[in-house]
């Protein structure tokens, strides 16, 4: 039985060596002495691929059974038995490991691994590929719209994919008439679904706040008529935020996203006003007041880290020290030519930062002053079903972006790319080929994702990032993948630590 070792993120840039298995099949390993981590794919008895991922982090030996979602924390002997389990019988494994552990311990560990396998919690086979084929052919409804309420901005952030809010086009504010037609389109295309999400996005939405208020009022009126429930959200850079807007948002917005990058020097360098002054001092007191007024829930302070602040864990902790409890600080996605872009050689430092952040979060949680970090939030016990996990975010089918002119795109990241123009809010989706392309976008449509241990937690990654780096929505953005895997490892480790 052949065993093919895959590389964990931390190993991906080490030079691997090759060994031969007993039956002379090529076995691709990495030097464990440097990292103490491994991820492997074993070929099951019926030829189907079963996948287990095991790694060490912060003193924990963690084993993830990919296809069942079971997570096990194991001792050293079990950690060493698992990779041998499908290759050798009990006696052979005892003989192989007897120099390092007591025979009785090895035999016990073997029996426990066998019990996990019998219980469907280890070496579970991947039987989902045929299943997802039928799922992707289901009829879908539109569940959410991202309204580009303002293609204009009062900041000049260096990394903005919207180019100061213009999205490769001209400055424009969405009119009430276009917004109203968008809500009508959503209601008409949502089938029997009751809960509908509308994100007020930009640019800077508060530059068109009267239309935001008018559209919320229209939505509240229409939801009674059509038995719908609108869940509105708002993203803002905080420049125009005031008490009246906070009061309105606390009444009407299910979630607000407040853009801030972290430490003052980091934030002001990347998020200046057009004339160069920083925005940190203006927005921080307002954001603190806003977060408190929402009871420290149903919001995120959301930042971006770049090549210029690879020590981003300090920015996360700075935001926590400012009193924020819902925090997301995310890697910039930028062309490789951008000076602030994350590069392959930055990855080891970023892994270290995620590890440091995870350890500090555990410490603070135990001290009763914990906070949430968006990319470490993982639900091991609940979470969505397999169908959702494999079919991705819903862009292009269930989620669409609307420009100030009423044009439809698969998501906010595709706005301005005419290849992805889908139609408009008056005539609906005219380019159904794009919708079908996105409907078929799932984990099994992506070669890189099929055997990845993270597939049930990332759903194949971001279609826009894939397109921007590979010209194909059915690929994957490699640096994003590497960081996602690391974050999942850290998130599971935090669960293990807090379960003690």
């Amino acid at each position: 039985m052949g065993v093919q070792y895959l590389l964990t993120p931390a190993q991906r840039f080490l030079v691997p060596f090759f060994a031969e298995t007993a039956n002379n099949e090529k076995c691709h390993k990495t030097d464990r002495s440097q990292q103490g981590e491994r991820s492997f794919v074993c070929y099951g008895k019926r030829g189907t691929v079963t996948v287990v991922h095991q790694y060490k982090n912060n003193g924990y030996n963690i084993v993830l059974d990919i296809n069942s979602g079971a997570v096990h924390v194991v001792d050293d002997v079990t950690y060493d038995v698992i990779p041998l389990y499908q290759e050798k019988n009990k006696e052979e494994i005892v003989a192989e490991l007897s120099g390092r552990y007591e025979d009785k311990e090895i035999a016990e560990a073997y029996d426990e691994v066998a019990a996990l396998e019998a219980g469907g919690e280890l070496f579970t086979e991947d039987e989902y590929e045929a299943y997802i084929d039928s799922f992707k052919n289901r009829p879908t409804v539109v569940k959410a719209l991202c309204l580009h309420i303002a293609h204009d901005c009062n900041l000049a952030c260096r990394y903005c994919f919207a180019e100061e809010g213009e999205y490769h086009g001209r400055r424009e504010l969405m009119s009430y008439e276009v917004g109203k037609a968008a809500l009508d389109f959503l209601i008409a295309n949502s089938g029997n679904r009751r809960n509908l999400e509308v994100d007020f996005f930009g640019g800077e939405p508060l530059m068109n706040f009267q239309v935001v208020k008018d559209l919320v009022a229209y939505g509240r009126q229409q939801e009674k008529i059509h038995n719908k429930n609108f869940r509105f959200t708002l993203t803002t850079n905080g420049v125009l935020l005031n008490d009246d807007i906070m009061e309105f948002a606390n009444r009407e917005m299910a979630n607000v996203v407040l853009s801030i990058d972290g430490r003052k020097e980091v934030h002001d360098f990347m998020r200046p006003f057009p004339k160069g002054a920083g925005s940190y001092d203006l927005i921080v007191p307002k954001f603190q007041k806003f977060a408190e007024s929402r009871g420290q829930t149903n919001y995120y302070v959301r930042g971006t880290f770049t090549h210029y602040n690879l020590d981003f864990s300090r920015d996360v902790l700075h935001l926590a020290d400012l009193g924020f409890q819902q925090i997301s600080v995310e890697p910039v996605v930028a062309p490789e030519t951008a000076d602030y872009a994350i590069r392959k050689e930055d990855l080891p430092k970023l892994y270290e930062e995620y590890d440091k952040l995870a350890v500090e979060m555990i410490r603070r949680e135990r001290e009763g002053r914990g906070f949430h970090f968006f990319h470490f939030m993982i639900d091991l016990e609940g979470g969505p079903c397999v169908a959702k996990r494999l079919s991705g975010c819903g862009s292009g089918t269930e989620y669409l972006a609307v420009t100030p002119w009423g044009d439809l795109y698969p998501c906010h990241q595709f706005v301005g790319n005419e290849k992805f123009y889908m139609g408009n809010v008056y005539e609906g989706v005219k380019n159904t080929a794009i919708r079908e392309q996105f409907r078929g976008c799932n984990v099994y449509a992506k070669e890189k994702c099929k055997s990845c241990f993270a597939k049930f937690y990332c759903s194949g990654g971001c279609a826009a990032n894939s397109y921007n780096f590979h010209g194909d929505i059915n690929n994957a953005y490699d640096i994003g993948c590497a960081l996602q895997k690391k974050r999942i490892e850290c998130a599971i480790m935090i669960k293990a630590a807090l379960a003690e």
């Binding site: 194991v74 001792d75 969505p384 989620y399 759903s459 999942i488 379960a499």
Partner: peptide, 19 residues
């Protein structure tokens, strides 16, 4: 078990619940 402790198969998935 003595050697194993088991801990536990629109979006923009890992933390989402049907609820």
């Amino acid at each position: 078990m003595k050697h194993v402790k088991t801990l536990n198969l629109t979006s923009c998935v890992g933390n989402q619940s049907c609820e």
